[in-house]
Simulated scan of single mutants.
Amino acid sequence: MDCLRAETYVLDLLHQLPPDLRYHGRHHTLDVVAAAQALAAAEGITDPEQLTLLRTAAHYHDAGFLSTYRGHEAAGCALARTVLPGFGYSAAQIELICRLIMATEMPQAPGPEPLARILCDADLDYLGRPDYWPISQTLRTELASHGQPYDAAAWLRLQQEFLTTHRYWTRTAATQREPQKQARLAEVRAELAQLTAP
């Protein structure tokens, strides 16, 4: 497995993502890679092959946006199945990578697979971070450019629902991110109350 070449290949491709992907840009992929590595270390994942496959899945998890907006996870898997054999990945390794990618589809469903749980938590790591607000605004802008505009109140209601129903899958994310996520939820509720007050 030549993971560095596989990663470089897809990161180069991600420069071609449409500029209206203000949230799902190359920067998001790099953020998810970093979060996945940190979570894997904290969760005690030490097997080199497992760590490599997680890294590869993180690099490819949103590559499907190169060809489609809806169903991008399946498109990312199709890309992985096409290019990863050329970098020395076996069929079984590629299928695991695709399972990890598909686990990030909304609503997330990682099942019991530890690597899938890590990737799902890494994908939404920002929900429990101080940069939640600016990142959520890039998502709002992106959705508007794809025919889903939200006014301020509708956006806050959507955020309230998402933050309320979202769960972290790993012990580490639940410990490190859940308290801050609850703080963001309280901020959303306060803003919504102020905005909709008579």
Rank of each mutant, 00 (worst) to 15 (best):
V83H: 10
H166N: 10
D20P: 04
A75F: 08
A109N: 02
D12I: 06
V33W: 01
L156V: 08
Q16M: 12
A6M: 07
Q194C: 12
R26Y: 06
G128D: 03
L96E: 10
I45Y: 05
V32E: 09
A57I: 10
Y126A: 04
C120N: 08
Y9N: 06
A41E: 12
G128H: 01
K181C: 15
E187Q: 14
V83Y: 12
L79V: 13
S90F: 02
D131H: 13
L195Q: 07
I101G: 00
E191T: 03
E178D: 14
D121S: 13
K181Q: 14
A91L: 11
T196L: 14
L127N: 06
L39N: 00
Q93V: 08
A183E: 09
L192F: 03
A42M: 03
G71E: 10
A116H: 00
D151T: 11
A36L: 01
T82M: 06
A34M: 02
L139W: 07
A58Y: 09
I118D: 07
Q176S: 09
M102P: 00
A174M: 07
A183L: 14
A6L: 09
P85Y: 10
A173D: 04
L119H: 01
T68A: 12
I94R: 04
A78R: 04
D123F: 03
A193M: 15
A38G: 11
L195H: 08
H24Q: 10
Q159M: 08
R189G: 06
Y23C: 03
V32Q: 11
E161P: 00
D123W: 02
T46W: 15
A63I: 06
D31Y: 09
V10M: 05
V83K: 04
H61P: 02
R70M: 09
L51R: 15
T170D: 03
A74I: 06
T164P: 00
D125M: 12
